[in-house]
Amino acid sequence: MEILMSLLIGVIFMSATYLMLSKSLLRIIVGTGLLSHGVHLLLLTMGGLKRGAAPLLGQQAEAYTDPLPQALILTAIVISFGITALFLVVAYRSYQELGTDNMELMRGKEGNE
């Protein structure tokens, strides 16, 4: 199971890298979204995918799944959600101000215009 997940995560990282190297800003943001999905799946996989009950004590099971990676993922999800929201708004503002979403055109001489 872990091997299958690793392959999947690898494909996600590959697509994210490809998208982030493209010219259009929106593609780049889609790439960062994919990247964070890959990262969260990786955390889950690295914690181990052994069988066990959901980490709720009410389940009365013999073995539970590892609760720590789930807490880490939850934290990482909200953080990347906040950053993605900011990134999208900055992208929207810069489309209004700069009039382009092409990264090739977003340069200035020596950093000043």
Partner: peptide
């Protein structure tokens, strides 16, 4: 204008490095 342009680059670089940080923590864990 310059701030918007440079923020996009700074944001992107740091989103990637944060993702790598979580990956590194995952491996270490």
């Amino acid at each position: 204008k310059i701030q918007l342009r440079e923020t996009i680059k700074y944001l992107l670089v740091n989103v990637i490095s944060s993702a790598l940080f979580v990956i590194a923590v995952g491996y270490l864990y």
